[in-house]
Simulated scan of single mutants.
Amino acid sequence: MPVTTIDTTTALVLIDLQNAIVVRPATPYTGAEVVARAVELADAFRDHSAPVVLVRVTAAAPGRTEIPRPPGPLPAGWDVIVDDLAGHPGDITVTKRSWGAFYGTDLDLQLRRRGVTQVVLAGIATSIGVESTARAAYEHGYNVTLVTDAMTDLNVQAHRNSVERIFPLLGESATTAEVIDLLAKTRA
Score class of each variant (00 low, 15 high):
100 G>C: 10
69 R>I: 06
67 I>E: 12
94 V>A: 04
84 D>P: 03
102 F>E: 04
87 G>I: 04
90 G>Y: 10
75 P>L: 01
83 D>G: 11
62 P>S: 09
66 E>D: 13
102 F>V: 08
60 A>T: 06
102 F>A: 05
79 D>K: 01
71 P>R: 03
75 P>E: 05
95 T>Y: 05
105 T>V: 11
105 T>P: 03
95 T>N: 06
82 V>T: 08
65 T>Y: 07
101 A>C: 08
59 A>E: 12
61 A>W: 09
100 G>Y: 00
98 S>P: 04
91 D>L: 07
106 D>V: 11
79 D>H: 09
66 E>Y: 12
91 D>R: 03
105 T>A: 08
82 V>F: 03
81 I>E: 05
88 H>A: 15
61 A>Q: 14
86 A>H: 05
95 T>P: 05
70 P>T: 12
67 I>T: 14
69 R>N: 13
68 P>S: 13
87 G>Y: 09
87 G>S: 14
92 I>V: 15
67 I>M: 11
77 G>E: 08
90 G>V: 06
68 P>F: 01
102 F>W: 00
104 G>Y: 05
95 T>S: 09
63 G>M: 06
60 A>N: 09
88 H>E: 15
85 L>P: 01
84 D>W: 00
88 H>P: 06
103 Y>P: 08
101 A>D: 01
73 P>I: 00
105 T>Q: 05
81 I>K: 02
66 E>L: 15
71 P>Q: 06
103 Y>C: 11
68 P>E: 11
81 I>W: 01
96 K>L: 09
84 D>V: 02
75 P>R: 00
106 D>E: 14
93 T>I: 11
95 T>W: 06
83 D>A: 15
83 D>K: 12
83 D>N: 12
93 T>L: 09
93 T>E: 15
92 I>K: 06
91 D>Q: 08
104 G>W: 02
95 T>G: 01
93 T>R: 10
104 G>I: 10
92 I>D: 02
106 D>Q: 14
65 T>V: 10
75 P>H: 04
69 R>A: 15
84 D>R: 09
75 P>V: 02
